[in-house]
Lab assay of single mutants.
Amino acid sequence: GHYRIRINGREFEIRGISEEEIRHLEEALRNGADEKILKEIVDRLRG
């Protein structure tokens, strides 16, 4: 998958993330885990 997200007015492209991972992120966001989720995304993109 290849997705664009906007955070604090800046747009980011996220590549190589699966539909299942996105559902997991959405679930966590609904549970209020904003900073933790951003850290997970950044860590994943770093490799």
Rank of each mutant, 00 (worst) to 15 (best):
L45W: 12
G47A: 13
R10N: 06
R15C: 09
I14T: 01
L45E: 02
R4Y: 09
R44Q: 11
H2Y: 15
A28K: 07
G32P: 04
I17V: 11
S18F: 03
V42I: 14
R44L: 10
R15I: 12
L29S: 03
D43F: 04
R30E: 07
E35Y: 14
I14D: 00
R44T: 08
G9R: 01
E11T: 10
K39G: 08
R4I: 15
E26D: 07
I17W: 05
R6C: 15
I17E: 01
K36R: 13
E26T: 07
K36V: 10
Y3Q: 02
G16D: 09
G47Y: 06
F12V: 05
R44P: 02
F12H: 02
E35T: 08
R46K: 13
E11K: 02
E40Q: 12
E20D: 08
G47E: 12
L45A: 04
E19T: 11
E26H: 05
I22G: 04
E26C: 11
S18L: 04
E40Y: 10
R23T: 08
R6Q: 09
F12R: 00
F12T: 01
L38C: 06
S18I: 02
G32L: 06
A33M: 12
V42C: 05
I41T: 04
I7F: 09
G9N: 04
E20C: 07
G47R: 10
A28S: 07
G9D: 03
S18K: 06
E35K: 05
R10D: 05
E27L: 14
G47S: 10
Y3I: 06
L45R: 03
I17A: 14
N31M: 12
R4C: 11
R30W: 08
D34N: 11
H24Y: 13
R23D: 05
G32E: 04
L45Q: 03
G47H: 12
A28P: 00
S18R: 04
E19M: 12
R10A: 09
G9A: 02
L25P: 00
R44E: 05
A33I: 13
R15Y: 14
A33L: 13
E35A: 12
L38G: 01
N8I: 01
I17M: 06
Y3C: 04
E21N: 08
R30L: 10
E11L: 13
R44A: 10
R4H: 14
R15A: 06
N8F: 13
E20W: 13
E27T: 12
D43G: 07
G16H: 12
A33W: 12
A28Y: 11
D43S: 09
L38F: 07
L25K: 00
Y3P: 01
N31W: 10
R23L: 10
R23C: 05
R15D: 04
E13H: 13
R10H: 14
I5K: 00
E21I: 05
H2N: 13
K36I: 10
